[in-house]
């Protein structure tokens, strides 16, 4: 169980970090940009919310199988494809987490009062300086919310994880998959302990994040 907990935590932290890096520029473009394809980008980012996780996982398997162009290229370049290993797990989790990261950040950026941005420009600060000195500090609550959502969501993720990662102990078996295995084996006491651990870790991480959000509210 400890092994599965470790995989879940590793996956959640890595997914949160990578997702935030990917979605921030996208959220920025959605919040302030006006460009062709904005609606399509929004629709694409919403897609993981609508698709059943198993369907998304299935498409990822198709996309990264060694017989597909992308999978074939990856195998040629790196000698492996992101399927049934931790990298596949991470990739699937990041894709599945995109809307949970992008939309709260987009909304937080949008809610920053225009006057603050104007004030910054008028005092001579460039767009980039304004982003770091005015926009991000005033949108940090939304950014933390996005991080909390991605983290909590990944901790409990099951469908995509099982499809793309499989069930390899110590490598791709997360705590939620472990619970599933134990229930299948009618080993309810182990399933109970693992579920309680998952619940405790989720509540603890969320409490920490909410505490952090309260502290940065200023």
């Amino acid at each position: 169980m400890v092994e599965a907990l470790f995989v879940s935590l590793k996956l959640s932290f890595a997914t949160t970090f990578i997702t935030l890096i990917i979605v921030f520029p996208l959220a920025l473009a959605l919040a302030y940009g006006s460009f062709k394809g904005k609606l399509i980008l929004e629709a694409l980012l919403t897609l993981p919310l609508l698709l059943p996780p198993t369907v998304l996982g299935f498409y990822l398997i198709l996309a990264f199988s060694p017989n597909s162009p992308v999978g074939g290229l990856l195998e040629e370049l790196f000698g492996t494809t992101p399927l049934f290993n931790f990298w596949g797990l991470l990739l699937g989790s990041v894709i599945y987490s995109l809307p949970f990261g992008a939309f709260p950040i987009r909304d937080a950026l949008r809610s920053v009062d225009r006057r603050y941005i104007y004030t910054s420009y008028l005092f001579g600060y460039s767009k980039l300086e304004t982003l770091f000195r005015v926009i991000i500090p005033n949108a940090k609550e939304g950014i933390i919310t996005a991080a909390a959502l991605v983290f909590a969501h990944t901790m409990g993720e099951f469908g995509v994880v099982l499809m793309v990662g499989g069930n390899i102990p110590g490598e791709t078996r997360t705590l939620s998959v472990y619970v599933y295995d134990e229930v299948q084996a009618l080993n309810y006491s182990q399933a109970y302990r693992a579920s309680l651990t998952l619940l405790a870790v989720s509540v603890l991480s969320l409490s920490l994040i909410l505490l952090l959000r309260r502290r940065v509210r200023r």
Binding site: R115, Y116, Y118, T119, S120, Y121, L122, G124, Y125, S126, V134, P137, N138, R218
Partner: peptide, 20 residues
Amino acid sequence: LPPQRRRIGVVFQEHGLLPH
């Protein structure tokens, strides 16, 4: 010329102080 290069002070109706 963008506002950054004009050096014009502006006071808005509802101030514009940076809340953070």
